[in-house]
Design a protein around this nucleic acid. Structure first.
Lengths: 350, 350
DNA sequence: CTGTTAGCGCTTTCAA
DNA sequence: TTGAAAGCGCTAACAG
């Protein structure tokens, strides 16, 4: 009967050295070297025994782990999977493993996951996704994040700068405003905004920014129809559908994200309203998977993968800094880039 | 100066109880209850000290963790993010955390991640994504997985049943064959298959299955043009483009996944070849995000999210089974469902 | 019920 | 260089 799993002690005794030597043979820590011959013996013994270091044991004595936790609203949403991709790419370069938690847009789950990740003593906890405009919720998250930093964990957030931690701030308002101006300049005048949930700060910032941009361009914003709803494809589809059924009069719809824009296009199509001939449609994010839809979607590009990398880097701090120093709170602002495509060719005044 | 992080010992002494009692107050393990009054004292002390149990310490003594590892080829690919979504949903129900590793299609990374996950003593290691047809690679993965099971870890795989572990087997051949027959029945006769990488078993199974289905339908398969290439949107775009430039004569293209099909449609469009009027296009997977593209893509639907859940369940075994019994090796076959949409309306013989 | 105590596997002083 | 030994924080016998 073979043992379930060889431990370092097994390796040491098989190699005929002490536990300490075996340990040093692996970590070779801080100049404390092991004579090459012994080292080889240890390594050979380890191989023969299929030794695999126990990360929990090491974590316990070291007081830190190689795990970073990433909390997203919905990993199946291409917005978040792109960000996750960036986080993982960066984490891999630091030799870190990424634990991803998908809250399915339940803020209480988010709280729970941060706490769980704290229990794991994750090296860093990353929050990606819009904050929700509820003070109690924000306080609760702040407290939980503080618990993480108190243990030496790093923390960073991607969305709004409201948690007193390093943040990748997406310039939702500015990007949306620029889109508003651009569409106005293309001749659109009668706008509908599919605004998403009221309390979702990202959605609200985009909707408000867009209207602001329109105002800057000189449009009477009282004419802009802002329609709240779900932050999803199906939500946008339903709202668009309802608007159409009640006899909508508009020449352009702005959805606060690409996935919603796609839903709007589908609703329009199903209703027999041609896009972009009868009505223009624009979104936000520039989701890669959606780049081939017809008509090509005008959108505000946000460098999602790169943002994921930045998020990870922000948490870890600059490489020069010692790993156990607290990272200073920083902000990185990410601008959005307006990309006009076939879905908003413009409208020449009749 | 406050302590960095309260330990259970701190909680115990503040509550005026022994370490064991404090521990029991939390776990309430196996009938070994604590007098309510003491329990309250412990819980209050814990709250006052911001106590947070150390998962590593617990993992070490328990000999197991609450982490499951999921290894995918590319988390930004909607195929995998949908699967990951299912895995996480199921994991959440078991109180497990999911560590996701994205190999970027490098098999050596996959191997490395399995080893890393083993070091974490993950409760289960899940491999999602096509196997690669290289015996040495398969042997290496098998060995690594065996190391996991030897430690009591569970293992499951999604794709082909070649690793001697529980597997969610996607019926790629059958699904593709059914698609072949369906397209033949719609009158298509001159086929191109964008087949993806030769060594990627999933890609090969789909391509071969498709041709097989065509043969079943009575087509002379010598007329089918099978073109290998990358498993990506851009790969398919490039190959389609090249085919077009050399003067392709076909009435239908089958891409071995939806993302590639979208690339093909884009290439066709850029080339001025109307889809579906001049040529039909079909894909595989039924990626949700792609359901609104025009023309609506004919495809073989695979229930990705559900497959992710099944994958997780397969690894864990039935709930009735004790958590430390080895799970029996099982197979779950997932059929694909042919869905014909506007991208392959059919061709009436001239 | 509650407390004492012996580890889990590993790293790291501290001596030799 | 190497070894002996002291924990890291927690759970689970084993006694009371």
């Amino acid at each position: 009967m073979t043992a379930v799993q060889a431990t370092l002690a097994d390796v040491a005794s098989r190699a005929g050295v002490s536990l300490a030597t075996a340990s040093r043979a692996f970590s070779g820590s801080g100049g404390r070297r092991v004579r090459p011959e012994l080292r080889d013996r240890v390594l050979r013994a380890a191989a023969e025994l299929n030794y695999s270091p126990n990360a929990s044991a090491r974590a316990m004595v070291l007081g830190r782990t190689d795990i970073v936790g990433l909390v997203v609203h919905d990993i199946a949403d291409p917005y978040f999977s792109a960000i996750a991709s960036g986080v993982m790419a960066e984490a891999a370069e630091w030799g870190l493993l990424v634990t991803v938690a998908s809250t399915l847009r339940d803020p209480h789950q988010e709280l729970r996951y941060v706490e769980l990740l704290h229990q794991q003593r994750a090296r860093a906890v990353l929050l990606a996704g819009s904050r929700i405009d509820q003070p109690e919720l924000l306080d609760a998250i702040r407290a939980e994040l503080r618990a993480v930093t108190r243990t030496g964990g790093r923390v960073a957030c991607l969305s709004q700068d409201v948690l007193d931690v390093s943040t990748v701030v997406v310039e939702n308002r500015l990007g949306a405003a620029a889109m508003g101006r651009a569409l106005h300049q293309r001749g659109y005048r009668r706008f509908v905004v599919l605004a998403g949930p009221d309390l979702l700060v990202t959605a609200r910032d985009r909707a408000e920014g867009f209207v602001y941009g329109l105002a800057e361009a000189g449009l009477d914003t009282a004419t802009v129809r802002v329609v709240p709803g779900a932050f999803t494809r199906d939500g946008a589809y339903a709202e668009m559908r309802a608007l159409l059924d009640e006899g909508l009069d508009a020449d352009c719809v702005f959805a606060v994200n690409d996935v919603m824009a796609v839903g709007a296009v589908a609703a329009l199509r199903d209703h027999g309203t041609p896009v972009p001939e009868a009505i223009g449609v624009a979104g936000f994010d520039d989701i890669a998977t959606l780049r081939d839809i017809t008509p090509a979607l005008s959108t505000v590009r946000v460098p999602l993968v790169e943002m994921g990398r930045t998020l990870m880097r922000l948490a870890l701090g600059s490489p020069a800094r010692a790993a156990d120093e607290p990272a200073p709170v920083q902000r990185v602002r990410v601008p959005g880039e307006v990309i006009l495509r076939a879905s908003t060719p413009g409208r020449t005044p009749a």
